[in-house]
């Protein structure tokens, strides 16, 4: 449980873009996992189950949230470099630009991209987490990368 809480928290923070909600999701997943522990035996099964549960719960929250006004976008500082020295701000601003670009993806695309690029999960594992096929994962990942690259270009 200690081993998984940090990766699951990072995943939920990236997908939800909200630390409080991410905490709620991870707490919920870990409590449920604890109760189901006897059913989840080997390590691989536990990891897969936890990633699937955390991904699904995060996506469900995003679906619920979609009906609410999207204040989150307003909070985003305008990070166009402007007159700031390009080199200095580039690394830090690049992360913010990426975060902004990630918000522009659909929740499913974002989940696929985060699971693959930040959590290095295999296509098969991501497919399992999202209840889809590895081929569909490959397609969504390609789409997500292309959209991100395009958004980053616009920022530049």
């Amino acid at each position: 449980m200690r081993r998984y809480q940090a990766p699951l928290y990072r995943l939920a923070v990236r997908v939800l873009d909200d630390r409080q909600e991410a905490e709620d999701v991870v707490q919920d997943v870990l409590v449920t996992a604890w109760r189901r522990l006897p059913e989840l035996r080997d390590d691989a099964a536990v990891g897969g189950w936890l990633y699937r549960a955390a991904t699904n719960r995060s996506l469900n929250r995003l679906r619920d949230r979609r009906t609410l006004p999207d204040d989150a976008l307003e909070q985003l500082p305008d990070l166009r470099p402007g007159e700031q020295p390009q080199r200095v701000v580039e690394a830090a601003a690049g992360v913010h630009a990426l975060a902004a670009a990630l918000r522009g993806l659909t929740p499913e695309q974002r989940a696929v991209w985060v699971l693959r690029e930040l959590h290095e999960r295999s296509y098969a594992e991501i497919a399992e987490a999202l209840g889809t096929s590895p081929v569909a994962v490959r397609g969504r990942l390609a789409r997500a990368r292309a959209d991100l690259a395009e958004a980053m270009t616009a920022w530049r």
Partner: peptide, 26 residues
Amino acid sequence: LLAAATAAARREDAALVPPPALLRRV
């Protein structure tokens, strides 16, 4: 640019630890 930002996001993630209260609540 995307690759650099991705690498930076990975480093940012690595530094992101869940608050201790989380495991306590669990």
